[in-house]
Each structure stands twice: as structure tokens, then as C-alpha cells.
Measured scan of single mutants.
Amino acid sequence: MSIQHFRVALIPFFAAFCLPVFAHPETLVKVKDAEDQLGARVGYIELDLNSGKILESFRPEERFPMMSTFKVLLCGAVLSRVDAGQEQLGRRIHYSQNDLVEYSPVTEKHLTDGMTVRELCSAAITMSDNTAANLLLTTIGGPKELTAFLHNMGDHVTRLDRWEPELNEAIPNDERDTTMPAAMATTLRKLLTGELLTLASRQQLIDWMEADKVAGPLLRSALPAGWFIADKSGAGERGSRGIIAALGPDGKPSRIVVIYTTGSQATMDERNRQIAEIGASLIKHW
């Protein structure tokens, strides 16, 4: 067993022997301040990774656009098919120029040779490549099948209805392509620590998230040296922004954090800054 596999296998073990965790309302004060600064709703939840206990939450059962955070769930569904012998990570998928959609920095470079399922998941999570996500959605049967996968996990809230990039439209009061912070946090925890996926697939999923290259201005910008984070960000229309993450000190994750916002007129930089400040408060009061 590799060191990384050992780390993920012992996530519940280490967490069980940690000192009790206590909620700190100071972080919620910052979440509410972010709402004021952005002029928009902000949803927040913080779960203990081992027990699933909610440590703090704000608007945990209000719907927010998922945006690209759905790509972690998508690759979880792909990995479940791999575990069941219905898919192979090494299978190569070929596609054409007509398949390319807006923001496809990886797939646009491989029109000639195609990409493997493993490479597509890596591109979808680490670079948020939209064509990679659409190609992977095709392998599982489309958005409705991802929703069905989530329902089978016990998540009857999260739903995907459309493809990239239309799913980022974020129309107010439109339930399409949305989740709730509580539902997303619980589902992410199941994917990373539950028995739904094999140990190898859980490790692969967290490795992809740990290698995320496009979430630097968010929670990662607030992390002290030595902290662990595996995350996936999302951005959408109407001032929408979000991030889902597993993080913790001492090089291992111990909490799940989900943050979503929508309806702001603020710039992307300002949305990023507010999420980073929430992260800084979380870490300060850990």
C-alpha cells in the first residue's frame, strides 16, 4: 500500500482519535458579512469528516447552483462504474471539434489522439474542462443518470439537468442544476469515506481534487503551510461562485467545507476574496 493510499485508508482512524471539535460562531459572522459585502445569498456548511456531524452552517438547506462543483460527483459516478466493471479508466475516447464547448483548455489539445477516461476526469476536476465533463456525462448516460446515481446514494436534493455550459445559467428560483450545502457536503463525505467506492477509487477521487489547479484564489489562499486540501470550485452566471473541499491540518483532511453564493453584482475577484476570507476565519478558529 502506498503512503497516499495509507493516508486515505486511515482518515477515519486518525479522526477518531482527534480531540473533540467545537464550532466557532466567528466564522458564521464572516459568512454573514460576506453576504453584506456581496449583496447576495451565501450558503455555508462545515462537517466533521469522521462523524458527519454538522459543526457550523448557514442557509444549509437553500438551493444554490452547483456550477462546476458537480464534476466531482460526476467522476465519482464514473469511478463507481469502474468498480462495477462497467468502465475502464484506460479506455480512450475520441471526439471532434464539434464536441468542444466553451472553456476546454485540455480537451482542445487532444482532438487528434483523444483522451482516456482517467485523463478526462483529471481534466474535468483539476482544470474544470467543460468538454471533458460533457464527454464523461455521455459515458454514464447524461445528466439524468448522474441525478439517479445521487438518488441511489441517498441524495434526493442534488440534481443535474443540463450539460456544460448551460448548467451554469443560475436563474433565480430555478431548481435545475442545483444542490443544497448540506446535501453536497453529505454526498461528498460519502464519496470520500464511505463504502460506495473502493479504496482505490476513493484515493483516485481525492487525488484529482488535491491536484486542483484553478481554485488557488479561494480556500487555498488562506491555508497555512502543512495543511491538506482537496477541492473543486465552480463559477456561473449572475454572480455565482462555489467551492467544495476536504481539508485539515497535519497533512490530512478532517472536515468537509461547502460554500456557495449566487445573485451578486460583485466582480469575480471580490467573490473570490470573500470566500478566501471565510476560509481564513475557519482556519483561525479551527
Rank of each mutant, 00 (worst) to 15 (best):
Q4H: 14
M127Q: 11
T112V: 13
E108T: 10
T198R: 09
F58E: 05
N168D: 07
L120Q: 02
T158R: 00
D83F: 02
S104E: 01
E195S: 12
V258R: 00
Y44D: 01
L74Q: 02
R176Q: 13
G242C: 06
A222T: 14
L55Y: 12
I206F: 13
K213A: 15
D83C: 04
E62Q: 07
F64I: 02
D174P: 04
R189L: 10
Y103S: 05
L218I: 05
T198H: 12
R59N: 09
D33N: 14
S122T: 09
R255N: 02
T178V: 05
F17A: 10
Q88L: 12
S254K: 14
I259G: 01
E119R: 05
P165L: 08
K144W: 09
I243D: 02
I278H: 00
G141K: 07
R41F: 08
G242S: 07
P217W: 05
I11P: 05
R159D: 06
V42A: 06
L135P: 00
F22C: 14
D83Y: 02
S254L: 10
A77P: 01
N130S: 05
T112E: 15
T193W: 10
E87M: 12
G242V: 01
M1H: 01
A34P: 02
R162M: 06
T261E: 06
G154K: 07
E270D: 15
E175F: 12
L199Q: 14
I11Q: 05
C121Q: 02
M184H: 02
V157I: 12
K190S: 14
A148P: 07
R41N: 10
Q203F: 08
T147F: 02
D99T: 09
P25A: 06
C75Y: 00
T138I: 11
W208P: 00
L160V: 14
A170Q: 07
Y95Q: 02
T27M: 06
P253H: 10
E164A: 00
I256S: 01
I11R: 05
Q4F: 10
S281E: 14
D36H: 10
T187L: 08
T178P: 00
L111R: 08
G248Y: 01
A9F: 12
T107L: 08
E119N: 08
A222W: 06
S281R: 13
F228G: 05
T179K: 00
E164V: 00
L218K: 02
L188K: 01
L167R: 02
V117G: 02
N50R: 12
V82L: 06
D231F: 03
P105K: 06
N98D: 11
R176D: 06
D129H: 00
A15F: 15
Q265E: 14
E195T: 12
W286S: 01
D48H: 07
K284W: 10
T158M: 03
E56D: 12
A246L: 14
A182E: 10
S233Q: 01
A222S: 14
L218D: 03
N173W: 15
D207N: 11
M209L: 08
T158P: 00
D207A: 15
E166Y: 15
L167T: 08
Q274R: 11
A246F: 12
I125T: 07
A15Y: 15
M184D: 00
P172H: 10
C75R: 00
V29I: 14
T158I: 02
N272R: 03
Q86A: 14
D83P: 02
V31Y: 01
R220L: 03
S51N: 12
M209F: 03
D129Q: 00
M66C: 08
G234R: 00
K32M: 15
E270A: 12
Q86G: 11
D83R: 03
E46I: 07
M180R: 12
T27F: 04
F149H: 07
L223I: 12
S104A: 08
M184S: 03
K71P: 00
A235N: 05
L191M: 14
S51C: 05
F6I: 09
G239L: 01
Q4A: 10
G76I: 05
G236Q: 02
V257M: 05
A15L: 14
H156P: 11
A132V: 00
L73S: 08
G76K: 00
E108W: 08
L28C: 08
M1P: 00
I256A: 05
G236N: 06
I243L: 11
L205V: 06
Q4N: 14
Q37W: 13
C121S: 05
G248M: 01
N130P: 01
P172M: 12
P25D: 09
F14I: 13
A23G: 14
E26Q: 10
D113W: 07
E87N: 05
C121P: 00
R176N: 08
T178S: 12
Y44M: 09
A280H: 13
L19I: 15
D99W: 07
Q204T: 14
R91D: 05
D212S: 07
I256D: 00
C75F: 06
D231V: 04
I275E: 01
N98K: 14
K144S: 15
W208Q: 03
G141R: 06
L136G: 02
G279I: 04
E270S: 12
A200P: 13
W227C: 02
Q37P: 04
S264A: 09
K252P: 05
I244Y: 02
D48S: 08
L218A: 04
A133H: 01
G263F: 04
A84M: 10
S221M: 11
E87H: 04
V82Y: 07
L100K: 05
L136R: 00
D174A: 05
A225Q: 15
I54R: 09
V31I: 11
A77N: 13
M180L: 09
V106R: 07
I125C: 09
V82K: 06
F70D: 01
T27Q: 06
H110L: 08
V42I: 13
E35Y: 02
T147W: 04
R81L: 09
A34R: 02
A40L: 05
D99F: 07
E108P: 07
E26K: 12
R241N: 04
T27I: 09
V8R: 12
R271E: 05
D177Q: 01
M153K: 08
G154H: 06
I278G: 00
M1N: 01
P249Y: 05
L49N: 05
T178Q: 03
R7V: 08
V29G: 15
A123H: 03
M180Y: 14
S2F: 11
I275W: 02
L135V: 10
L73A: 11
R176K: 14
L74I: 07
F6H: 08
Y103K: 02
K213S: 11
I140T: 07
I275M: 11
K30V: 11
A84Y: 10
C121V: 04
A235I: 04
D212H: 05
H5Y: 12
V117S: 03
A245K: 00
S68R: 00
R189Q: 15
E195K: 11
Y44E: 01
W227N: 01
Q37H: 13
L38T: 09
K232R: 06
P181E: 00
S57C: 09
W286F: 05
R202E: 09
F70E: 02
S57P: 02
R59G: 04
D231K: 04
T187I: 08
M153E: 08
E56Y: 05
G248F: 01
M209I: 02
D212T: 06
G142R: 04
G194C: 11
P12V: 12
A235S: 08
M153A: 13
V258G: 05
Q97M: 15
I206Y: 15
H156G: 15
R92H: 10
V8C: 14
N272I: 03
E62S: 08
W208L: 06
L135G: 02
N50S: 13
A276H: 14
S122F: 13
L38R: 06
L47W: 03
K30D: 05
T107D: 01
A182T: 12
N50M: 15
L219H: 03
R220N: 03
S96D: 12
K190W: 09
R63G: 04
K232D: 00
E145N: 15
D177W: 01
